[in-house]
């Protein structure tokens, strides 16, 4: 087996003086979709932010693509090909879709940037029809796609998605999940935190269950969904059904 794209060892991270996640050990292979599930407050988003360098690391190491990154600022991690789409709306609402995409390719040269816009709008054709529209005037689902397109501008190796379906209607949810699969087909590895457990696990290759800041179960999505005790204990009634 090839070495993992991301390797996290004994990671404890959080905010202020208290860690929220403890002793996280995690290997993510290239080309996979890993979904992290768990109840509210389990530490899922904190873990994603720790991998991207947005909160305080108390102990542990993070290796990405063979390089130790835990001391790097998030901007430096981004330049290495690690991208993060936070929860909620995260775009530039008073700029057009085209300007948002141009800022997505902030670190690229002008020619590369325009090529990248062509590439990402091929993945998300819906954005091609909205290039002049202000991002703040797009629907929730379209804004989520725009945010993914913005980080895909630099062709990241690993994409961290924090609750991509939050606040979306069922139609927009399907649109987003479908497009996450298309992103994977482009060779991008994905780690996703998602409350919509069944929808997310249906498109995932690996699953992680977190509780009280620790990883309690790892395995295939099917195994986790079929284990009624795990589903009932950690994923809530809806997922257990």
């Amino acid at each position: 087996m090839s070495p993992p794209l991301l390797s996290v060892r004994d990671l404890s991270a959080g905010y202020g003086d208290e860690p929220i996640t403890y002793d996280i050990n995690l290997d993510v292979q290239s080309g996979t979709i890993t979904t992290i599930v768990g109840s509210n407050g389990a530490g899922k988003s904190t873990l994603l932010k720790a991998i991207y360098g947005l909160n305080r690391k108390f102990s542990g190491t993070i290796d990405f693509n063979g390089r130790n990154i835990e001391t790097l600022a998030s901007v430096a991690r981004f330049r290495l090909g690690l991208a993060f789409v936070p929860q909620g709306r995260c775009n530039f609402p008073l700029m057009s879709v085209r300007e948002n995409l141009r800022l997505g390719g902030y670190s690229l040269r002008a020619m590369e940037r325009e090529d990248a816009i062509e590439r990402v709008t091929e993945i998300f054709p819906i954005l091609r029809q909205r290039m002049s529209v202000l991002a703040g005037n797009l629907s929730g689902g379209e804004q989520q796609l725009l945010e993914m397109a913005m980080v895909l501008m630099i062709s990241p190796k690993l994409l961290l998605l924090d609750e991509p379906s939050i606040g979306l209607s069922p139609i927009n949810l399907s649109l987003v999940l479908e497009n996450i699969q298309r992103i994977r087909a482009q060779g991008v590895t994905i780690i996703m935190v998602e409350q919509n457990v069944r929808g997310a696990l249906a498109i995932s290759t690996d699953a992680i269950v977190m509780d009280l800041g620790r990883i309690v179960v790892t395995g295939s999505p099917q195994d986790i969904l079929q284990d009624e005790r795990i589903a009932a204990a950690y994923l809530g009634k809806r997922a257990a059904r």
Binding site: V75, A83, Y106, E147
Partner: peptide, 9 residues
């Protein structure tokens, strides 16, 4: 936050 997301310092 969006600026940080796209690698702007």
């Amino acid at each position: 936050e969006a600026a940080l997301m796209v690698g702007i310092d």
